[in-house]
Amino acid sequence: MIKVREATEDDNWALIELQRKCPMGTRLALRLNGSPDFFARSRAYEDWHVLVATEDEKIVGSAAYTRKEAVIDGELVETVYEYGFIVDPERRRRGIASMLQGQIEESVRTDVDLLHLNITADNLPSINLFTKLGFERVKECRACMLMAYRRHRPVDDLHIRNMTQADVSDVVNMLNDFYRDHVFYRTLTAEAFLRRYRGLPHFDLQNIWVYDDGGVKACLGYWDYNKVMRFAVERYMWRWRILRPILEVVGIFAEVPRIPKQGEQISNWYLTPIACRDPKGLTSLLKHLLNKALEENVDFVSVPLDLGSPLTAILSIFRRYEGEFGWYMKSLGQRPIPDLLDKRLYIDVADI
């Protein structure tokens, strides 16, 4: 008999082993490894829960959720973001994911208006499952992964420096202005900003830079996500299989992106925070960061985007890989699912 309960720290290594058995993605499948701390991803949130499904005391599935207050159409709405659904491949098609979903809904139904999650565009089994469970796709999004494979020149290093305590208020005001019209974005205070970034596992405030040209014109930080989760290539799409031997030959004579072999690890930094008053300043910060990533053998620096994000045009000048995913919502009460077709969506990197 399958039972669902709250996970404990004692479940850590069993969950890591289950995670290794459940590659993420279809065309590009990545094997996840959250050791030594499976719960590190969840620790990015203030109010989080990890559930496990067990059969004969063995963990055969897991899912997680966090409560979030989100601004939708100018109102503060109680939401739950769901993530980390995994089921033992030998026990799929037995309703385990549906049982985990049912437990989440039972736990939050009395005080939450909306549930939401994201699913990669090619993950048809998950799309079908959550659609049957009442979720609707509300937005098409993209993971923009900038490739760190060559030095970028010129970089206006004279105007780039680390953020200081004195910059926090200016950076917060810039973030609030930049994302003010984005659904889900909550206006920050300096205290909330510092609490947020000090709370991200393995994030260092020294990793936030500003572009200062008579005042702070752009900010950019990076979260070394390799310390939270490591990804290894399980399999990749046919295009990468064709390109890889070609790029190996071309790479003898020129700087080209690296396509990892099956089984090799992909290293990734997430871009956060990211905003600007001057796109040229943010472009310089991105070049500066990509040069640093190259020096430290990082493959990608990534940011999730709504397709209508003002960042899209700025990032378009860089060589990148783009992965599509959809944002899905379900209403638990009287509040209808919002129409986000013509609105911008703010995506927290911790949610990806």
Results as ranks from 00 to 15, higher is better:
Glu106Asp: 12
Glu106Phe: 05
Glu106Ala: 14
Glu106Thr: 09
Ser107Leu: 14
Ser107Tyr: 13
Ser107Pro: 00
Ser107Gly: 01
Ser107Ile: 11
Val108Met: 06
Val108Gln: 07
Val108Ile: 13
Val108Ser: 05
Arg109Gln: 13
Arg109Leu: 06
Arg109His: 11
Thr110Gly: 03
Asp111Ala: 12
Val112Trp: 08
Val112Ser: 13
Val112His: 12
Asp113Val: 06
Leu114Val: 08
Leu114Trp: 05
Leu114Ser: 03
Leu114Gln: 04
Leu115Thr: 10
His116Cys: 06
Leu117Gln: 08
Leu117Glu: 09
Asn118Ser: 13
Asn118Met: 11
Thr120Phe: 15
Thr120Arg: 14
Ala121Gly: 10
Asp122Ser: 01
Asn123Lys: 02
Leu124Lys: 12
Pro125Tyr: 03
Pro125Glu: 00
Pro125Thr: 00
Ser126His: 01
Ser126Ala: 13
Ser126Glu: 01
Ser126Lys: 03
Ile127Asn: 04
Ile127Val: 14
Ile127Lys: 13
Asn128Asp: 08
Asn128Lys: 10
Asn128Gln: 07
Asn128Thr: 11
Leu129His: 02
Leu129Thr: 03
Phe130Arg: 05
Phe130Ile: 02
Phe130Asp: 09
Phe130Trp: 06
Phe130His: 14
Thr131Met: 00
Thr131Gln: 08
Lys132Leu: 08
Lys132Tyr: 06
Leu133Lys: 09
Leu133Thr: 02
Leu133Gln: 10
Gly134Gln: 02
Gly134Glu: 01
Phe135Val: 00
Phe135Lys: 01
Phe135Arg: 01
Glu136Ile: 02
Glu136Pro: 00
Glu136Gly: 03
Glu136Gln: 12
Arg137Leu: 08
Val138Phe: 04
Val138Arg: 08
Val138Trp: 05
Lys139Thr: 09
Lys139Met: 10
Lys139Gly: 12
Glu140Leu: 15
Glu140Gln: 14
Glu140Thr: 11
Glu140Gly: 14
